[in-house]
Design a protein around this nucleic acid. Structure first.
Lengths: 120, 120
DNA sequence: TTTATAGTTAACCAACTAGTTTATTAACCA
DNA sequence: TGGTTAATAAACTAGTTGGTTAACTATAAA
């Protein structure tokens, strides 16, 4: 799978997004991250979610004694954001071209071009 | 599943992202959208991908004779973008708090505090 | 009325996901 | 040394995903 797909896939789970949100307040170890979820799922399940985030490059773990401290990594998020931004740009551009086209066919010297009112 | 998860999940496939990119140039029917992929996958596979995009609200299909014309829908993309933006905001905020904290402990009256150079 | 075109549905399959429980590793504490 | 804490690994399972082929529906065109 390509990396961007892996990132979007990692983001497509509310538990994992909540973990990222938690980490946006600063580093945390696995136990701290797990706490809000241990009523709903086991610790190994948490470990797995963290592995998914790690595989996507969204977090990195560092060992400190028996603790694993996790911290955020911005690049993959930027990657996802860039895709969306680029996409919006393409889209706007195509709207712009449409506008130009409409102006062209609607207002040439003595136009009688029919409207088609597509946009929204 | 919550809606945001459905959106991220829909975006986590290169075929589907390519289809969205195609649609950013304007409406297209299923056959047109399928064309670039028919060497790699069958038409029913394309139909399924479009169903995923439709379920996420990213596209809407309209019937015109035997053709199904697809067009983009911006709200879900905005939803995804908003999550990322909000997340970045939280994160920056926590960096700001960290900066404040560091200033506080490092620069009281006559400081000689050492740099920490974390923030890239 | 038959035939071609556009697309969906159904049934199936292999691989993956998200969870489980049990067992294991590793470091600290008494 | 033995027990506790933090976390991972292994083995299993139910459900989902992404693909297939074959059959079907609906409209257009001859």
């Amino acid at each position: 799978m390509d990396h961007l797909s892996i990132v979007f896939s990692a983001l497509s789970d509310p538990t994992r997004r909540a973990m990222l949100a938690h980490l946006s307040n600063g580093e945390a170890n696995v136990g701290d991250l797990a706490k809000p979820f241990l009523k709903h799922m086991s610790l190994p399940a948490v470990t797995k979610h963290l592995k998914v985030l790690e595989a996507a490059g969204l977090i990195t773990k560092t060992a400190d004694a028996q603790f694993r401290s996790c911290r955020l990594n911005s690049e993959p998020l930027k990657e996802a954001n860039d895709w969306i931004e680029d996409f919006k740009a393409m889209w706007e551009e195509s709207f712009d071209r449409l506008d130009e086209y409409l102006k062209e066919i609607q207002a040439p010297k003595k136009s009688k071009g029919k409207k088609h009112g597509k946009r929204k």
